[in-house]
Design a protein around this nucleic acid. Structure first.
Lengths: 188, 188
DNA sequence: CGCGACGTTGATTTGCCTCAACGATTGTGG
DNA sequence: CCACAATCGTTGAGGCAAATCAACGTCGCG
């Protein structure tokens, strides 16, 4: 576990004691393809760090259509951040796309660590800043670009993810149907 | 200035000295309707707290079409957060929709304060968490809802903004044309 | 008053969706 | 390891929501 933690916080100098304290709040869990880590209406207590595998979060609308919010592969974090940060029930489902190993950490434990080890709070602030940049870019792309352009940018931005995921995962992330994605691919 | 700062950080206990230090890095500026606080390709050094008035950020695509990313009224913050957090040139324009008074603060000064007054870092982390919730919701809305539904949610979420802004500001925020917005309004 | 900016309405086009059928690939039980 | 089913991806036809293009009404301001 400690080597995982060292890897996550590789750019922070942690004392032996701090490392121990931080490591204590992370818990490794293993999951099979198709497993659900968080279901709609659950309380969102945890966020997850991906050690191995691939997961996604998706929203199920009233027409039972899936909308993928996020993918996460090795070294990425994933949760229903609406529920996690606003202390409300989950609106998203977290699902394993492949067999996966994750480290889960509860919001409460993390907030406690922030007080004890301010460097960790700083780390998560910077993580949020990077996430903000990605969100803004995605909102901009959705506003300004066609389905084809969004697809091309996805390929450029996350070149290693397309091979792992299904057609309909990607289509539901781009906001189009599988048929449209198929036609776009044929064009290119 | 100190009363402004007290208002911004109303939920944090700051000593007299801390308050003084924090107040020192904020600078009040006044602007006329139509003024541009940040232009494309500028360095993004500042974020802005709105004391009075209304501003927006927008992206100009290659077809010269505007896409509004964000509005900001009293007590809101605004910047090109892509440029601000990733230390890159601006891709957005910050524009005054009405005469406005803002407090500007540089990233560098803020980072210095984080070290001196960790409570301030905590405040901005929480601000980012709330922003993350809003971004996720907006991405979800764009994926799952029709133009009409997005408009109705905008009205519910920001009831005080519609009266201030132009038709085309809102249309470019919702990702539709002014004509479509006009037709949607007629329906309701 | 007259001009320019803004909002509305109509006609037409278009990008993407829906529905349906059909290959291709994957998974599973015998 | 094969046979078969289920899942997934592709293709075509037709439809719809919103875009585009164009014209006209309205408002605010010099």
């Amino acid at each position: 576990m400690k080597t995982f933690i060292k890897n996550i916080f590789f750019d922070i100098d942690l004392s032996v004691n701090e490392l121990k304290e931080v490591a204590a709040i992370f818990h490794e869990t293993k999951h099979k393809k198709g497993d659900v880590l968080l279901d709609i209406e659950d309380n969102v207590r945890y966020q997850f760090y991906v050690v191995e595998g691939c997961l996604r979060t998706f929203f199920l609308d009233e027409k039972c259509k899936e909308h993928t919010v996020q993918f996460a592969v090795k070294d990425w974090w994933i949760s229903d951040y609406i529920g996690y940060f606003s202390e409300s029930k989950s609106v998203l489902t977290i699902e394993c796309i492949t067999d996966s190993i994750v480290l889960k950490v509860s919001k409460r434990n993390l907030e406690d660590i922030y007080k004890k080890v301010p460097k960790i709070e700083c780390f998560y602030r910077k993580k949020l800043e990077k996430a903000t940049v990605r969100f803004q870019k995605r909102i901009l792309n959705n506003l300004a670009l066609s389905a084809k352009e969004r697809y091309e940018i996805f390929l450029k931005t996350y070149p290693n993810i397309e091979q792992i995921i299904k057609n309909y995962h990607l289509a539901s992330y781009l906001g189009i149907t599988t048929e449209s994605l198929s036609r776009i691919r044929k064009e290119i």
